[in-house]
């Protein structure tokens, strides 16, 4: 089973929705209403089924706004700073995220896929 299918299946089971409703571009919080308790369940489900270590803060971009503040205070290039914190995300995706911040939580299903793929390659 591929990574996207596995992630969709876990989301569908935990949120009690149809997996067909979920795409790579689906926002977890904005579209699916994922809450903090769901994130914790997702993390252990990914660890259990995929056998990878899960850093909750990293996979779910939990400290994104903190890192933005740090980058601004340190006068660092924001995209480069975020790339260090989120090595699974391409710089193009990080630029998209920065443009998308004003509309709410930015995490998409494709970010989870990137994280899991990155961890599997490390593995």
């Amino acid at each position: 089973m591929d990574i996207l299918t596995t992630i969709k299946d876990h989301l569908a089971e935990i949120l009690d929705i149809e997996a067909e409703e979920i795409t790579l571009e689906t926002y977890l919080v904005r579209d699916l209403g994922v809450e903090s308790i769901d994130f914790l369940e997702l993390a252990v489900a990914f660890n259990s089924s995929l056998g990878i270590e899960i850093e909750d803060d990293e996979i779910f971009l939990a400290n994104l706004r903190l890192y933005l503040k740090e980058a601004k205070e340190g006068k660092s290039d924001i995209v480069s700073y975020l790339a260090q914190k989120y090595p699974s995300l391409a710089k193009e995706r990080l630029k998209q995220i920065l443009q998308d911040l004003d509309d709410g939580p930015v995490l998409k299903v494709k970010d989870l896929v990137s994280y899991v793929s990155f961890r599997c390659q490390e593995g």
Partner: peptide, 10 residues
């Protein structure tokens, strides 16, 4: 233990 992350354990 079925699965774990830094912050959760199942």
């Amino acid at each position: 233990l079925l699965g774990k992350s830094k912050q959760a354990f199942s």
